[in-house]
Computed example of a mutant assay.
Amino acid sequence: MVPVQNDRRATTTLWRPTGPEELDLVRDLGWRAWPPRLPEQPIFYPVLDEDYAIKIARDWNVKHDGAGFVTRFEVDTAFLTRYPVQQAGGRTILELWVPAEELDEFNAHIVGKIELVHEFH
């Protein structure tokens, strides 16, 4: 994770590959929070590498949902220290695993808005 210093506190850039349904829920939340996980989704996993997020959105979300999107957002770096980086495969396949029951607290540490940065159909 590479911290970015803004005018108030250090933040870390994260990416999230997502399908159209989750993106609609983020839009409904004013681009400021992630929606609650479904019962079969015990973990929210933002990723640390934009290329990895693109690969998931393009190769998985498009196949399963007809469209895939990549979002980018900033989170308070000090808060993120509670989530060890998980290597889910290769050297750049890095994720944070946020338990579903901690997502509200995670959302409270998002700095600014969630941005849509890539779209695949």
Rank of each mutant, 00 (worst) to 15 (best):
M1G: 08
V2W: 14
Q5F: 14
N6Y: 11
R8E: 10
R9T: 14
L14W: 02
W15N: 06
R16D: 08
P17H: 13
P17G: 15
E21Q: 14
E22Y: 10
V26K: 02
V26S: 10
R32E: 09
R32K: 15
R32Q: 15
A33H: 05
A33G: 14
P35Y: 00
P35L: 00
R37M: 07
E40K: 03
Q41K: 10
Y45S: 08
Y45L: 04
Y45Q: 03
P46K: 03
V47S: 02
D51N: 15
A57E: 08
A57C: 14
R58C: 05
D59Q: 13
V62T: 09
V62G: 08
K63V: 07
H64Y: 12
H64Q: 12
G68N: 06
T71Q: 12
E74A: 11
E74P: 00
V75Y: 03
T77I: 07
T81E: 10
R82Y: 03
Y83M: 15
Q86E: 13
Q87D: 09
Q87A: 11
A88E: 05
A88K: 02
T92F: 09
I93H: 08
L94C: 05
L94W: 02
A100R: 08
E101C: 11
L103F: 02
L103Q: 07
L103E: 02
E105V: 05
N107E: 00
G112Y: 14
K113E: 11
K113Q: 11
E115I: 00
E115P: 00
V117A: 09
H118N: 14
H118Y: 06
H121R: 15
